[in-house]
């Protein structure tokens, strides 16, 4: 194994780990936004901007991750197999998952960049693919190599997965708990003390 190949391989693995962290942060921020939450110390628009900038940063890192894997001559990964799922000769399945995840990411981010042009409904529909993109990326990282299969990187992966799982459960619970509008409305109608400040949120979001 010559040193430039080794270097490329290391860079690919390193950027892979960074992508794991970035994607996790992006999806956690997205979940926070859908609950109209904010980060302590930051105004609300901070969450919006962070979500957007970290996802664009992730694009850079994923590009390097894929490019270095392709460029590295130790294993044969063609350019096409970075984007077209399951055509690689090396680890076709696990790498294929990476390609799927990359494709989904491109769709989500591209539509977000032009969302005012494509309309709300289309943009939202495609954005939901993010919930598919993330677990597929995790599966790709676990299956593609020994790095994350033991040691500190395994714990990192577990921690990220746990964080996202908890956030999704919390988000779903909040949506269900935001009492269906009907109940809140009836409560307000019955209550003579009509000056309470609770906001009635939408029943289904």
């Amino acid at each position: 194994m010559d040193s430039s190949s080794t270097a490329l391989w290391y860079v690919s693995r390193a950027t892979g780990v960074v992508c794991l962290l970035l994607f996790t942060a992006v999806i956690l921020l997205g979940l926070l936004m859908s609950r109209q939450g904010k980060l302590p110390g930051l105004p609300k628009f901070g969450v919006v901007h962070l979500h957007r900038y970290l996802s664009l940063l992730a694009v850079s890192f994923i590009t390097v991750h894929a490019a270095t894997a392709v460029a590295d001559s130790f294993v044969n990964i063609s350019l096409a197999s970075a984007i077209v799922p399951f055509v690689s000769k090396y680890e076709p399945f696990w790498l294929g998952l990476g390609a799927v995840s990359l494709d989904l990411m491109i769709a989500v981010i591209a539509t977000s960049l032009i969302r005012s042009r494509i309309g709300r409904r289309t943009w939202r529909a495609v954005h939901w693919l993010a919930y598919a993109c993330w677990p597929i990326a995790i599966a790709h990282s676990i299956g593609s190599g020994p790095d994350v299969q033991h040691g500190p990187l395994l714990w990192l992966t577990v921690a990220c997965t746990a964080a996202v799982a908890i956030a999704i459960v919390a988000r779903t619970a909040a949506a269900l708990r935001a009492a269906p509008s009907d109940a809140q409305i009836r409560a307000l109608l019955a209550d003579s003390h009509t000056r309470n400040r609770t906001r009635i949120g939408a029943a289904h979001r």
Binding site: M33, Q36, K44, F45, V48, R120, R199, G201, A202, R205
Partner: peptide, 25 residues
Amino acid sequence: NPIACSGHGVCAELLPELITLDEWG
């Protein structure tokens, strides 16, 4: 678009000269 609006309030932070929030956000 009042149907799409869920009262995040980001707009009022970014453009306070033209946007304020009502008592429900």
